[in-house]
Design a protein around this nucleic acid. Structure first.
Length: 428
RNA sequence: GGAGACGUGGCAGAGUGGUUGAAUGCGGACGCCUCGAAAGCGUCUGUACUCGUAAGGGUACCGGGGGUUCGAAUCCUCCCGUCUCCGCCA
């Protein structure tokens, strides 16, 4: 969330940010409430000050066995008044927090301003799209023929939007996870994490999924727990309510988790095969950094994710999202999109975002800078994350890119050590 | 799931109704001492909100919420968490 002080002092910047995103949200009510709250706060603080002083006096009088009835009865009235104003302050405070939770982050000045996704900018294209001398099949047909994914039975077991990998398909999934984790831990310096797949409400609020996106999340009602929509949630919340040491930063974490998304409201859109499923695997990259380095860290994070695609020899492009398409919590975000020749389109497999202090403020993650003056205070850290990368759609691109005329699929070389050095996936 | 114990500052650990934001120790910062260092001595060392140009002032916070009281870290209550024992279990 944003700092109420920042909003108070820069209402125009915040208003512009909201309208640049193509949203409507009236800040005036918030600002009025903020003013009202501070006025009441002053009032009640003064009363409490009086209360504290008089209570001490009462204590002394009683110790000396003197009469304090007069002061006590006066203080009863004051205490009542304090109660009253406190309730008002709390009430307004709650309303303010509610609004603060739904105000989006301020987009970085370097990103295109446009209220809808048409303003997204392709900033890089990598690799050649494959050329076939036959009509390429899409991944569903390939997977069915190779008997490596069984969609009908997945639907029988769980419902639409679930996947049952088999044989080389299951093996490919596991190979990709290991390949990516090894790359990020061994080459890019990330520490491997294996977090819980169920998280509580506070964690979901900390990273910004709640309260806005509750209907997109799977929730276990009896325990008020949520299935993680991304490893970003448990991993970022590792340091919730903590003050980190400056010398410990930056912290790089990578984690595999399954990701669960209800995809409410997206029925009929993009729902074929592996492109939009309720459960998919993902290796996530999460960074905790000092504010002044976060934009450099974003570029490095993106490069780390890109390397996965490069090593797999897949054709992709990098899209810088505009103000209208960037997610609620992000200041700046690059999407990596893989080309899938059989489907004839791009699939988003990664979003690399800098949240600046937006999540850190919500999740209350700070660090203590080693200041030169004698007053070391605390500052919010910056958080970043990116998929490195998401599996289901990655499998689409691999199958469709490396397909042969006979329907078999060549295994990318970087992956072979993870698949018993097989060269291709064949039927049977 | 049942029974019991506990939850205080960066850590350890006092404190059971009235100068307690909180003793003491450790850790940390600064100063003195020293050629330098150690030891020793001295001073300082939580977070947040709010008022103020500032200096500085005020308020809140002893797991969280609610309550009793003129006054709560201290009493009551609910919740959460940790530990021990029992049960169950991969």
């Amino acid at each position: 969330m944003l700092d109420i002080k920042f909003i108070r002092e820069n209402p125009d910047i915040v208003k512009k940010s909201i309208s640049d995103r193509g949203l409507e949200l009236n800040l005036d009510e918030l600002l009025t409430m903020d003013e009202e709250r501070r006025k009441l706060l002053n009032e009640v603080d003064e009363l409490k000050h009086t209360k504290n002083i008089v209570s001490d006096e009462v204590g002394k009088l009683l110790n000396e066995k003197k009469d304090a009835k007069d002061k006590i009865s006066k203080m009863k009235v004051v205490s009542q008044k304090i109660d009253e104003i406190d309730k008002k302050v709390d009430g307004i405070g709650e309303k303010i927090t509610k609004i603060l939770y739904i105000i989006p982050n301020i987009p970085h000045s370097s990103i295109p301003v446009c209220k809808d996704p048409s303003g997204n900018k392709v900033v890089k294209e990598w690799g050649k799209k494959p050329v076939f001398d036959f009509k390429p099949r899409d991944h569903m047909e390939l997977a069915a023929n190779l008997d490596i994914i069984d969609f009908p039975r997945a639907t029988k077991i769980s419902g639409g939007g679930f996947v049952l990998y088999k044989k080389a398909g299951a093996r490919l999934e596991r190979a990709l996870i290991n390949f990516m984790l090894d790359l990020h831990t061994k080459k890019h310096g990330y520490t491997e994490i294996f977090p819980p797949f169920l998280v509580n409400r506070q964690s979901m609020t900390g990273t910004g999924q709640l309260p806005k996106l509750e209907e997109d999340m799977y929730r276990l009602k009896d325990d008020d727990l949520f299935l993680v929509p991304t490893a970003e949630v448990p991993v970022t919340n590792i340091f919730r309510d903590e003050i980190l040491k400056e010398e410990d930063l930056p912290i790089y974490y990578t984690a595999y988790t399954a990701c669960f998304r209800r995809e409410a409201g997206s029925y009929g859109k993009d729902t074929k095969g592996l492109s939009r499923v309720h459960q998919f695997d993902k290796v996530e990259l999460v960074k905790f950094v000092k504010p002044e380095t976060s934009y450099d860290e974003l570029e490095k994070l993106r490069a780390d994710a890109e390397e996965v695609l490069q090593l797999l020899g897949l054709s992709y492009r990098v899209v810088m999202l505009c103000t209208g398409d960037i997610s609620f919590a992000a200041s700046k975000c690059y999407d990596l999109e893989l080309w899938a020749e059989g489907s004839g389109r791009y699939f988003e497999v990664s979003s690399c975002s800098n949240f600046e202090d937006f999540q850190a403020r919500r999740a209350n993650i700070k660090y203590r800078p080693q200041t030169t003056d004698h007053r070391p205070s605390t500052r919010y850290i910056h958080t970043l994350n990116g998929s490195g990368v998401a599996l289901a759609r990655l499998v689409i691109a691999i199958l469709e890119t490396y397909q042969e005329k006979d329907g078999s699929v060549i295994i990318p070389e970087a992956l072979r050590p993870y698949m018993d050095y097989q060269e291709r996936i064949k039927a049977g």
